[in-house]
Computed example of a mutant assay.
Amino acid sequence: MAITIAVASGKGGTGKTTTCANLAVALSQFGKEVTVIDADISMANLELVMGIEGRPITLNDVLAGTHDIKSAIYEGPAGVKVVPAGVSLDSFKKARPERLLEVLSKLEEECEILLIDCPAGIGKEALTAISAAEQLIIVVNPEISSISDALKVVSIANRVETNVLGAIVNRVTEDSSELSARSIETILEVPIIGIVPEDPNVRRSSAFGVPIILKHSDSIASQAIIELAAKLVGKKYIPEKKAKESFVKKFFKGVFGGRKK
């Protein structure tokens, strides 16, 4: 049986799907059999990030009852198995979201780690995905609106007894207006397990439909995600660009007492 990890966010635009896709690839590079599913059936984007758009059978077809889940699993980058939700409006209309739990239970038999790219927010589909997972990672930006919305997701996860592994703070800059790591941990009451700096290579990679850790493996965002994947599988990883480490360390100081003014 797979370890199931829901990757969620309180609001759209945090970079959740991109983070989830790249984390899947990074975990695969550490030798894990990884499947990632796009559970955001109404606003599907995972297939675009993974470069497998236009596949004939998708999760929406499975939820509609016309196909088996195995027919919607595709080989993605770095050997990651990908279940796209599909962008067809007709398939979406026929989909029955209540069947998602059944689908996820079948996918657990196909891999070591199952990542669920959840819909943003706290709607019914997001709740179903979160409750089906053993673990939850919440992706946030270092701004109060993102943290406020994430707090609701964490609360729901606690209610449905899904263990919250922690938060990934994404798109971090050195702007003084950003919340510190310590502040984020205090508000959410969960540990920060990863910090991903703002990186223009993320946008460039997305334009080509290639995960950033494959197209720009030495970029600061790539190194942060690979380091997080290493933590999750219990392996040690030293980022390639040591000169950039000071940036992350500077932000992490907030956890241990430093605070941005």
Score class of each variant (00 low, 15 high):
residue 151 L to I: 05
residue 203 R to P: 08
residue 135 Q to S: 15
residue 199 D to Q: 06
residue 213 I to H: 07
residue 187 I to H: 09
residue 193 I to F: 00
residue 132 A to K: 03
residue 192 I to V: 04
residue 139 V to G: 01
residue 136 L to T: 12
residue 197 P to D: 11
residue 190 V to D: 05
residue 145 S to F: 15
residue 166 G to Y: 10
residue 130 I to E: 02
residue 132 A to H: 04
residue 195 I to G: 05
residue 167 A to F: 09
residue 198 E to I: 07
residue 146 S to G: 12
residue 166 G to A: 08
residue 165 L to P: 14
residue 191 P to G: 02
residue 192 I to H: 02
residue 153 V to Y: 13
residue 161 E to T: 11
residue 190 V to K: 11
residue 200 P to R: 15
residue 151 L to Q: 05
residue 182 R to E: 07
residue 126 A to C: 01
residue 199 D to P: 02
residue 193 I to A: 03
residue 139 V to S: 02
residue 193 I to C: 03
residue 146 S to F: 15
residue 192 I to G: 07
residue 188 L to Y: 08
residue 164 V to I: 09
residue 189 E to Q: 01
residue 142 P to G: 04
residue 189 E to L: 00
residue 205 S to K: 04
residue 213 I to Q: 02
residue 169 V to N: 01
residue 191 P to R: 11
residue 168 I to C: 06
residue 144 I to Y: 10
residue 212 I to D: 10
residue 163 N to M: 01
residue 189 E to V: 00
residue 204 R to G: 08
residue 169 V to W: 00
residue 146 S to E: 06
residue 151 L to N: 08
residue 198 E to W: 05
residue 159 R to D: 03
residue 147 I to Q: 07
residue 131 S to F: 13
residue 143 E to A: 06
residue 212 I to M: 11
residue 140 V to N: 04
residue 152 K to H: 13
residue 213 I to T: 09
residue 201 N to I: 12
residue 172 V to Y: 03
residue 214 L to V: 14
residue 199 D to S: 00
residue 160 V to L: 04
residue 200 P to A: 10
residue 213 I to K: 01
